[in-house]
Design a protein around this nucleic acid. Sequence first.
DNA 1: ACCACAGTATGGTCAGACCATATCGAAGCC
DNA 2: GGCTTCGATATGGTCTGACCATACTGTGGT
Lengths: 230, 230
Amino acid sequence: MVADWQPVRRTRTFEDVIAQIERRIAEDGLKAGDRLPAERSLAEQLGVSRSSVREAMRVLETLGVVSSQVGRGPDAGAVLTSRPDTALTDLLRLHLGLASLELREVIDTRLMIERWAAARAASAGSDTSGLATALAGMDAATSAEEFVEHDTAFHCALADASGNRLIAAIMRSLRDSMRRYAVEAVTRLGDTSVLRADHERILAAVRAGDPDEAANAVAEHLAHAYPSLS
Amino acid sequence: MVADWQPVRRTRTFEDVIAQIERRIAEDGLKAGDRLPAERSLAEQLGVSRSSVREAMRVLETLGVVSSQVGRGPDAGAVLTSRPDTALTDLLRLHLGLASLELREVIDTRLMIERWAAARAASAGSDTSGLATALAGMDAATSAEEFVEHDTAFHCALADASGNRLIAAIMRSLRDSMRRYAVEAVTRLGDTSVLRADHERILAAVRAGDPDEAANAVAEHLAHAYPSLS
DNA sequence: ACCACAGTATGGTCAGACCATATCGAAGCC
DNA sequence: GGCTTCGATATGGTCTGACCATACTGTGGT
């Protein structure tokens, strides 16, 4: 038996461009804030058309790795950034819309993450000022949308307090992509006093440095918010 | 004090195109497998240039929502797909390269996910044939790379067995993006018999339907594989 | 029934132009 | 000297139109 034939790898030009940029990032140790050459210049140096460079830029921008500004000066052009959140958010939102992911799966994931983050935040003795601020915002909220806004801030602050940026980014994306459903859930619930008590309990547990209690508080909180999925 | 001025929202053409496609997906209930109009046709219908349509396509392709084939026929053109994995993988790999995420954070995330998935798989009594197959592959492996290949398959099968596609997609991406480090870890370890015993223990726990034991087995396994990060 | 080949629709790439924007810099003014 | 003004310039954003490679489709011949 001879070796299997490998299908010819169709490499599109813009993929080569991405690969070269990625290589440069790794080799030259480029980091967020550093500038990339201008599109025209990059196209010339790589011997490709500007369109291909632009498509590569679109991909990198979508992945939250570069950000482009028009105009002239030190801030203009393509700059390396670090926004995994927005990329993740877009990704989840689109796939929720495509029904390739179900709400149930997203909420389960959120529960997993949040339990972990709460426990981690509690045992790390993290700063809880962000949590308190968000709590106050929820009290002042006059609509479901506004409530959800601060609720999101609370839970993202919790994820931030865990000290893991990947977890925090995933959390932020999950919340953003399911904002619509959160508003529905709050509206359906009507009374938010239960949720308020939950939040206080979570905050207290984190402050007390009790990981297990923090995780349980979070779990019960989500059960209250989404009773139909429990 | 007058109301704050809002910065003019610069909407790029391709963003409009994406928004319209996204709206169509939601309103027309398009799903994976459905075809989008050809680039030229879409450009004409939307009154924009083909370049803008192409940039929109690049973004959607990057997010794992569409896939383009050249040529002619039923399979040609832009087809809606559902590949959150590849998008996530690219995202994580690039951000690891950019050092906007640390390996430690990725491994912590992996531990969290894998504990959850193992427990879930155990309590759901999922099919374990994929796990067994991967285990056999690891035994037959003759190099660190090959071992890691089947190890990855094992852990992804575990995530699949949890029944949550989002979790599985995140797992797959985490593994893919840190493949390099996994090979290093195995090479450094030398002897893989400890890992083999861990895998057997995980498999046994899942088969026995013991969620706690499964989660603990996974946690100890990762501690063995990455002792420096424990 | 089969096969060969021209036709055609598709994405991939390129070149070149023009626009909007934002900075830079020199000229002019006080 | 310090200020404003305005043109020069570099940047991304968009469009047009062309050409190529690919892969199916249909036709005509065998």
